[in-house]
Design a protein around this nucleic acid. Structure first.
Lengths: 404, 404
DNA sequence: TGATATTAGTTCGAGCCTCGAATTATATCG
DNA sequence: CGATATAATTCGAGGCTCGAACTAATATCA
């Protein structure tokens, strides 16, 4: 039961009921397509007449189209409805420190065209390089009306100003990406943290996680980020910085982190940490802090994974150590939020056969009730970071209406 | 933006708009009373005619009443509306290991009558002792129609079965309190964990926390519990066990906890922990584990607080140690959930002048961005545990409607 | 082959809801 | 007293869902 937010509510008008039911029908079509009007009425509980009117409206607005006829044991054959893939396009942009990928997607969140560019150091230059590529993507399928642009960022976006306020890996500080992108393209732009994007991708399109009420995504790369879906909603916190469990301490008075805190989770369970474990094991005598940092430049995580796959015992041990700390950081999340599922995103999932059992075991040891929480790796094929940006835009039409 | 839950949604009917607007109006009356229809229209954005119809309906159903006339510089005087305190009663029950308190409250969550009883060991006996007292409370103001019973419990309630599944301090195991209480009284019963109740109390009636979007309540007594309000909603987790940050580790391989984990937060920051710190300091030689446990029976936390108030340095140090660990456990919550406010509930708030600054300082040191999160003590006068049970019942009428 | 049963989808009036203009009620001020 | 202003009500227009009645299409069976 939600409390009504008296500082920001929407009253109901005569069209509110339609808005609500239309969104429900649209969602049912998306998840059950192809589906007949009669079945929509059965699934939704609405009258067949009401479904017909809504369907007519959706067809007129070209959100859905009629398809082939279905089969029934007896009686008139149903007309199938399905989402109109020829109507709407969404641009998704996944900004990462080295490479930015972008794509045009249809209503089913299938990618129709993709592109990528090296991420420049300067955010202004980034915008000027990005805009022509966005335009090119839009021209790739000119029959599609572009509904908006979703952007996934390795940082945090201020809830009010929509400015990027914290992106240490990018080196950008307090930059407004939304306004110039909207001006240049004429499309509404939605920004979101990468972990949050992944979380949206999972609950909207995830094979196992779709529709879950409570889900936590843990993105593991140079740092660790968390995307929290609780009560079917993204948790952004008071200023948009929720999810920074990566900077919660797992080792009291441990290693100093760039955030100023000591013993942060991401100092022990990130890709960088695994590399540190490896180099320390490989050359224990020289394992001072300085040495470690220079070593990080010579071996990267990709390399480490390959070594582990080849059976290099030091690499395997480094991954196991990383997995143990991943589990130790996930444990309090399981205890505190009791999500239905935790999805791990990142290169480390490639070694899930070795890493997964250790994470699960550590969580089991360190958390109070994890019986119900599944811990699974994300499928990188689905490109959750990029696909989440599509969800970001689609939720405007498919999400629950803003009411009360 | 919320994703629509396709396994559990409500379509809109012709009455949905009224339901929504009615709840908005009811909330505006509650927070702004006395208030005129014209002002309600201004605050809500609804037409004056619509407000009038809704007000008429609420008056007819005796939720509100017309009061005195107001004053305006010119023009017809407004008729004030306010909640009808003579209409609805709510029974609240706060179950604690030693003492159970219960009260009858009005629509403004003011207590009209209170009662208490020693909590018996046997849950069945508890029900049979409780029921006559509930009936007595209802008879105290026979003109009030009782809307329901809210119960706050030191344990966790399974979301589906509504059974109490985990209440170590009570010694009850998997007990159904709801069904017998509903049968005996004929009233709907809502059960909720005590920390969650406090959280509801704070966002519904709290002086500082009312209406906050993201709030975490930390209840500190023999153990530590957390009530999470995120996006104006209680977070219950997949099975109703969310909030058990008390069983997240703050000390790796630390003291063994009854939950089986090691180094749990509540082993270091609960009242019991403070007592352990005190007894260890008072007789360091005999501070084996066994000794400590027997000592706990001789000194209680109440006693410790009084010693600290009198300036006993060992007692003060014990509280400071407790405060430090409180801060260390709050830090990851601040980092991970970025709430607008953290409210600390428990006896320890009596020593807030000493404890508060240490908590704040520790959190500042150990969390990434706490600039926005206020950390405040709850006011025990407001009886948040008990008042939260009223919120539990009132939210059925004042909460956002279940839609889509 | 034609009657019957069955299912899909449409039509249309009843009833609920909000909106907004017009109207009524009641103040203050010069 | 009349002008002006504010509060509250009245009432028709238009949007919405419901549900009964109706049309359309198909399989079954005598």
């Amino acid at each position: 039961m939600r409390r009504i937010d008296l500082s920001n509510f929407q009253v109901a008008t005569s069209e509110t009921a339609r808005d609500i039911n239309r969104r429900i029908v649209l969602n049912l079509i998306r998840t059950h397509q192809p589906i007949s009007r009669a079945d929509l009425a059965r699934y939704s509980g609405l009258q067949r007449s009401t479904v017909s009117v809504i369907a007519e409206q959706l067809i007129k607005e070209r959100w859905i189209t009629e398809g082939a006829n279905g089969h029934t044991p007896r009686g008139r054959r149903p007309t199938f409805l399905h989402l109109n893939k020829e109507r709407v396009g969404i641009i998704g942009i996944n900004v990462r420190p080295i490479l930015t990928t972008l794509a045009l997607a249809d209503l089913d969140a299938n990618f129709l065209a993709q592109d990528s560019l090296p991420t420049p150091q300067d955010p202004k230059q980034f915008v000027s390089e990005l805009v022509p590529r966005v335009r090119k993507l839009m021209r790739a399928r000119p029959e599609l009306t572009c509904e908006g642009i979703g952007v996934s960022l390795p940082g945090r976006v201020d809830l009010e100003t929509k400015r990027l306020v914290f992106a240490p890996n990018l080196g950008w500080k307090d930059f407004d990406l939304k306004t110039p992108l909207e001006k240049a393209t004429g499309l509404p732009v939605e920004l979101e943290n990468a972990a949050n994007s992944c979380a949206l991708s999972e609950i909207c399109f995830g094979r196992r996680a779709e529709g879950l009420r409570n889900l936590v995504v843990v993105t593991v790369s140079e740092g660790i980020g968390c995307g929290l879906i609780l009560n079917h909603q993204l948790v952004q916190g008071s200023t948009g910085t929720a999810g920074e469990f990566g900077h919660a301490a797992v080792v009291p008075d441990g290693l100093e982190c760039s955030c100023g805190n000591r013993g942060c989770w991401e100092m022990y369970a990130s890709n960088s940490a695994a590399i540190r474990y490896y180099t320390q094991a490989a050359s224990p005598a020289r394992a001072t802090k300085r040495r470690t940092q220079t070593a990080e430049r010579t071996i990267n995580f990709e390399h480490l994974l390959r070594l582990a796959e080849q059976g290099d015992s030091k690499a395997v041990e480094a991954l196991q150590q990383m997995a143990k700390y991943l589990g130790m950081g996930i444990a309090p999340i399981v205890a505190g939020l009791a999500p239905d599922m935790i999805v791990v995103v990142g290169e480390v999932t490639r070694a899930w056969q070795q890493v997964g059992p250790i994470i699960r075991e550590t969580v089991k040891q360190h958390s109070f009730t994890c019986a119900e929480t599944q811990i699974v790796p994300s499928d990188p094929i689905t490109q959750p970071r990029l696909r989440g940006t599509i969800a970001l835009v689609l939720l405007k039409h498919f999400g629950a209406p803003a009411i009360a």
